[in-house]
């Protein structure tokens, strides 16, 4: 569908007008939604509207409004607030969840960087557990943003590394290396998106507007690090395990047919907290901080340790470094 605000033909009005007045797509669908609410138009033939309860009617109106909402970056503050209110209400009606969705912007003067100590990681996967809980990852398909690879000492061949080890760790003669989205400074996943649903924020986090993504999966093909995940079905999280502290660009409910990925826990880090994986790591193998602050720990690591990044020859410039003691 057109997203540029051109006039389109709303349902039942062949001349492109509703009430004799030219309307844009959003306005037209909004009016249509109002019509649905009044029970005047049949949007869904299989669900007779006159039988709908007030809550079902409200749900259908909200779904229409959600369907016609603007791109996140084009919203005014008022539209953002309205959108957030709608999504929170939808979570309540659909899943009986009381969630709070933030739209916190990037802090000025902050650029996030991450460092991973391959000498310290013991392969416990506590980061993965914390990430699943923190980001409301789909339990049905066992979605995980982080992989921990068990590697043989002396080599760094990810092709031969094992991410599915299940034995006591750390194993003799092995070290462990974790991957997730690296929030590349030159992210190949962004320009390939045909609809501009994924972009880089000023603090370096690459985000996705789940309501704008059309699920073409071009970004997944473009990412050289296999960092993105696709929702073949609506994500399922047991009600008592839902993390209600959410962000529009982060861990809110993802629907069927959209792409998601690690956002460095945007809902936490923009408030000064550490990402859940960093907080959960028992041996402290993960370092996180502001690259623009010369006195930050991440800058100390970058200045004092031997570093490498994955697939540097691709010039993606990950803001995610590996180091050893």
């Amino acid at each position: 569908m057109s997203d540029d605000g051109n006039s389109v033909t709303p349902d039942g009005a062949e001349d492109g007008t509703v009430l004799q007045k030219p309307v844009d797509r959003r306005g037209a669908l909004g009016m249509l939604a109002a019509g649905v609410a009044a029970g005047a138009a049949a949007a869904s033939a299989c669900r007779p509207l006159n039988a709908a309860t007030p809550e079902e009617r409200e749900l259908r109106v909200l779904e229409w409004q959600e369907f016609t909402q603007k791109h996140y970056r084009r919203m005014t503050d008022a539209e953002r607030a309205e959108t957030i209110q709608r999504i929170e209400r939808l979570a309540k009606i659909r899943h009986d969840e009381d969630v709070t969705i933030a739209t916190t912007d990037a802090q000025p003067g902050v650029l996030f960087g991450y460092a991973f100590n391959i000498s310290k990681c013991k392969g416990y996967r506590n980061c993965i557990e914390a990430c699943i809980n923190e980001n409301n990852l789909d339990r049905a398909s066992d979605t995980q943003y982080i992989r921990i690879f068990e590697m043989e000492d002396g080599g760094i061949n990810l092709e031969e590394a094992d991410a599915t080890y299940q034995h006591e760790v750390p194993a003799e003669g092995h070290f462990y290396l974790g991957t997730q989205c690296f929030q590349c400074a030159n992210p190949p996943c962004v320009p390939v998106c045909p609809v501009g649903a994924t972009w880089q924020e000023p603090d370096g986090i690459v985000v996705i507007d789940y309501n704008w993504c059309v699920g073409c999966r071009a970004c997944m093909a473009a990412c050289p690090y296999w960092a993105r995940r696709f929702n073949w079905a609506q994500a399922e999280v047991p009600l008592n395990e839902v993390n209600p502290n959410q962000h529009y660009l982060g861990n809110r409910a993802r629907k069927k047919g959209v792409v998601e990925k690690c956002t460095f826990c945007i809902h936490r880090t923009r408030k000064g907290q550490l990402p859940a994986c960093v907080a959960a790591c028992p041996p402290g193998a993960r370092v996180f901080g502001n690259l623009l602050d010369p006195d930050s720990e991440i800058r100390w690591v970058l200045a004092n340790k031997h570093l490498f990044r994955l697939k540097e020859e691709l010039a993606t410039e990950p803001r995610y470094w590996y180091f050893s003691d």
Binding site: K122, G123, Y124, R125, N126, I128, E129, D138, S141, D142, T143, Q144, R147, A163, T164, Y165, Q166, H167, E168, V169, P170, M220, W226, R229, F230, N231, W232, P282, P283, G284
Partner: peptide
């Protein structure tokens, strides 16, 4: 983190492994 009298980190069983096969066929 370190027991001062026995400071080496001990081995233990990690959090469950990802089901990569399932992930490959149903998710990614």
């Amino acid at each position: 983190c370190h027991d001062p009298h026995s400071p080496a980190i001990q081995q233990r069983i990690p959090f469950r492994a990802p089901e990569l096969e399932r992930a490959r066929t149903t998710h990614e």
